[in-house]
């Protein structure tokens, strides 16, 4: 595939995500896969670039949650088609994540957005779902020896479970990074709870996750040069 064709397909993938055009994403993904080439650029310069734009539109309040969910659906359509054809890169950045919404909270949309970005980045994600008993986070962390645990809570009334999970995990495994997020979480709260990082809303979560993916992309580009 020549560069012009690559650019065209990447653009189609990015636009497909931004416009939540499932057919366009499917078509471009299949076209790329049919060439037999590595799908790495298609995923990162196509799908992820599209999601970066969605993040920007969300931050400027042109897009809201429904639009973001539809864009995420489109991204997954492309990812499902192309990921089996991506050549794995050994960059030293790999990881396992345990993610879930704490008990008492049945909201999982923010959690799913964050999960999507870990999926894209090639992390192994263990999704415990929503309304997860607090001890289950610890159990899964110990079982998988995950590098990261992500806790989500949408309501003030449920975030109080978070410090308990953090304490349980840090006691057993102080090096595990714990990220918390959700509407009621501020930097102060995260600090008080002893979390390693936070995103207090879907925009922020998406921005943080995108930053993480972009950083990863840079590392990988750097690594592939060497």
């Amino acid at each position: 595939m020549d560069q012009a064709k690559k650019d065209e397909l990447e653009k189609k993938l990015a636009e497909g995500v931004v416009e939540f055009d499932d057919d366009e994403v499917k078509e471009a993904s299949e076209e790329w896969v049919a060439t037999g080439e590595d799908t790495y650029d298609a995923i990162f310069d196509g799908l992820v670039t599209g999601m970066e734009e969605v993040g920007r539109l969300f931050a400027t309040q042109e897009y809201f949650v429904p639009e973001m969910l539809m864009a995420a659906d489109s991204l997954y359509i492309g990812l499902d088609i192309m990921r089996p054809h991506m050549v794995p890169r050994d960059t030293g950045v790999k990881g396992t994540v345990v993610i879930g919404t704490v008990q008492g909270d049945v909201h999982d949309i923010g959690k799913n957005i964050v999960k999507m970005m870990f999926d894209v980045a090639g992390f192994q994600v263990f999704d415990l779902g929503r309304d997860v008993p607090l001890e289950d986070f610890l159990k899964k962390q110990l079982e998988t020896n995950s590098d990261i645990v992500c806790l989500s809570a949408m309501m003030t009334t449920t975030m109080m479970g978070m410090p308990k999970v953090i304490e349980m995990i840090k006691e057993k495994n102080p090096t595990c990074k714990i990220l918390i997020g959700g509407a009621p979480i501020t930097d102060d709260v995260a600090d008080k709870f002893g979390a390693d990082g936070t995103a207090n809303d879907a925009t922020n979560a998406l921005e943080e996750a995108i930053k993480m993916i972009v950083a990863l992309k840079d590392i990988q580009k750097e690594a592939s040069k060497n």
């Binding site: 008990q103 008492g104 909270d105 049945v106 309304d131 008993p133 607090l134 009334t157 449920t158 109080m160």
Partner: peptide, 15 residues
């Protein structure tokens, strides 16, 4: 509704 009768934590019920 789930009143979380079996949980130590004080939680608001959910569906």
């Amino acid at each position: 509704m789930n009143p979380y009768a079996d949980t130590k934590e004080l939680l608001y019920p959910t569906i």
